[in-house]
Amino acid sequence: MEITCAGHVRFPTRGLAAIAALLLLTACSGSTESAEASGAADDSSSTAEDSGSSETATEETGQEPAEAAAGGPGTGVITMDDGTVYTFEMTTCDTSETVPDEIPLTNGYDLAGTTADGTTDLTLARLGFSPDEVAVTVGSIEGDYDENRQNAELLYAANVEELDLTVSGGSVTGTATMRAVGPNRPHGDQPTATVDVSC
């Protein structure tokens, strides 16, 4: 009789050769279990690789992680000439250079934001339908709302003739002369605001 280990080596079952064959058979059997164990390890590593490939696939689809998307479109900082600084989380932050199809007007922008505590709002816009059209320009800082978040007691409107803002890519910077409209006038009647918005 002959014993085959892994189908390659054959040993006759006589005397010491039989004992050697049994030891070898046991070793072959152990190596099979090792192979199975290593196969299990290979399976887990392939699972990890599969997980990695799904992350790669997500990157290839262009989808961003949720926390990156939650960051918002930009930040706006308005510094009043009395030193008061308002920082706005932008809810709309577009310029003629970032979305030229939507804002074809040269040096155009559409900006809106709210402070983190939700008490003050910013609006700045210079819009038109063609590069050379006369722009419709507006600007305001509003706050001190009633319990329904309406009827702002603090309201400053930009003097359009003195709204000197420049677009550079996703940035809008410059100065704006504001006019107090609401009864609460913490910055005076005609403060100058320095604008620095990054989309």
Rank of each mutant, 00 (worst) to 15 (best):
D144P: 00
G30M: 06
G139Q: 04
G182S: 04
S198F: 11
T114K: 14
T95K: 06
S168G: 08
N184K: 08
H187T: 02
E67R: 10
D121Y: 07
T106P: 02
S38E: 10
V197I: 09
P73E: 05
D144M: 04
A135C: 14
A41W: 05
P191Y: 03
V197G: 07
D146T: 01
V195I: 08
Y86D: 07
M178N: 09
T32S: 15
E147Q: 00
V134P: 10
G170Y: 06
E59I: 12
T92W: 08
S34I: 03
T84F: 10
T173S: 11
A69W: 06
R126H: 06
E133H: 02
F129V: 10
M1A: 10
E142A: 09
G76Q: 03
R185E: 14
N107I: 06
T91S: 15
F88N: 04
T166K: 15
E97Q: 09
P12W: 00
M90C: 10
L163K: 00
T106Q: 10
V167A: 09
N184G: 07
F88S: 07
P65T: 08
P104G: 00
I19V: 15
R185P: 03
D50I: 00
C199N: 07
D43N: 11
T192L: 15
A69N: 01
T91P: 03
R126M: 13
N151P: 00
L154F: 09
S96F: 08
T92D: 12
T87R: 15
D164F: 10
A158S: 08
S46W: 02
T120N: 08
V195L: 08
D196R: 06
E162W: 01
V85P: 11
R179S: 15
Q150N: 07
C5L: 15
D196Q: 11
A37D: 03
G128D: 12
A69T: 05
E49K: 08
N184M: 11
F129G: 07
A69E: 15
V99Q: 13
L25C: 10
G74W: 11
T95L: 15
Y109P: 03
A158K: 02
D82L: 07
A158W: 06
D94L: 09
L24D: 05
E162P: 01
V197C: 08
C93D: 06
T47W: 06
V99D: 09
L163D: 00
P191M: 11
T173D: 06
D164W: 14
D117L: 13
P186N: 12
T166Y: 02
P183A: 15
L122K: 13
S44D: 02
G128Q: 12
F11W: 03
S96M: 10
A27I: 02
A125F: 13
P104K: 12
G62T: 07
A21T: 01
D189S: 04
D50M: 03
E89L: 13
S53C: 05
H187V: 06
